[in-house]
Design a protein around this nucleic acid. Structure first.
Lengths: 185, 185
DNA sequence: CCAAAAAGCTAATCGCTTTAGCTTCGAACG
DNA sequence: CGTTCGAAGCTAAAGCGATTAGCTTTTTGG
């Protein structure tokens, strides 16, 4: 009987798959073990426990989001770059709605998040760099941006926009609204 | 031995107290039972189970928020009313940071939320009524508002704004940004 | 006073996490 | 080749929380 050949990465992969398919509440060691074809306690050889697994999942989502946004911002500047970044952020959520809850729900206080969160912030700051904002103004501009994209994305991911109107339109207006709050050339 | 004299309301009250004091993750039937001085299964006489209790907690938070906002909007109009409402929303979160997670985290899909959510939406629509927005535009304006206030509040409640800059300033800018997106008289 | 419903309790089950300790695969090394 | 030893896995068992069943007791309305 060959071994399962698991690894921390493989376990996190399986966890993400569980979340995608059954939602965040379904992220349980039992579910991950079943998916990886291993007994539950075996998972402890790769992750410290359910808590740590949750953190790793959250970090992974953070990283993937940051990656996407960084990729899309290359070769663009100012409003063009900001709009692209906002679309990329929302795009990740549309692709993996269930994951979004994981990104939020968990211990932002955990140190492991710090690194991933910083990476995400750096992308934001880089894109806003073209507007010549000084230190504090840049911080506030980044916060406004986070509030807007996170607010919209989390409501949309949770199915919170019940009415029939097109959410693409709403998001477009949100982008315009945010851009208007940045210093005009 | 007199009875505990519990009621559904009292159980929800205790649940809110647990959330306030120990966070949303600590909301457990065991914790609520301990606080109300009753055995765990006795709680089932008043609430259907943990799931239902969570929903009731979320609904309560919704209602209280809507109430506060409605109260503060009275006697104001347009920008004045919108700003007051935004401050009231954030104020609730500042007063009960831990509760905010409950408002979000839970089944928006649950029908019980519908009524409470509708009440909240009505306040938003009422305040935006002064701007003469037609149907679809009003919907988008309400969504923008929700995205902004919810985004900021949830990040702040989770301790997501790590840097030293004053969050009051950020929120002020967010209010201005949103107001600028509404039709000028 | 009495009956019945409501409120509470104890006992028991179930699912999930976690710990302990054993077994076995497989790779590196003689 | 054969050995050994660490990593990866497993089984067993404990513990905690939710939930269900079924009994007891208080309250309350007639």
């Amino acid at each position: 009987m060959p071994r399962a050949g698991l690894s921390t990465t493989a376990v996190v992969d399986a966890a993400l798959a569980v979340v995608d398919e059954q939602g965040l509440e379904a992220l349980t060691l039992t579910a991950v073990a079943a998916r990886t074809g291993v007994a539950v306690p075996s998972l402890y050889k790769h992750v410290g426990g359910l808590g740590e697994l949750r953190v790793r999942v959250g970090v992974r989502v953070f990283e993937e989001t940051a990656e996407r946004m960084a990729a899309v911002a290359i070769g663009r500047s100012r409003d063009d770059a900001v709009a692209a970044l906002m679309h990329a952020y929302r795009g990740y959520v549309l692709d993996h709605p269930a994951r979004y809850a994981a990104m939020v729900a968990d211990p932002l206080h955990d140190p492991a998040y710090a690194a991933a969160g910083t990476k995400l912030l750096e992308v934001f700051f880089a894109v806003l760099g073209h507007y010549g904002l000084d230190g504090a103004d840049a911080v506030h501009a980044v916060r406004r941006l986070r509030a807007v994209v996170h607010g919209f994305a989390s409501i949309e991911a949770a199915g919170g926009f019940g009415l029939a109107e097109d959410t693409d339109v709403t998001y477009g207006q949100l982008i315009d609204m945010y851009l208007a709050s940045l210093p005009r050339s």
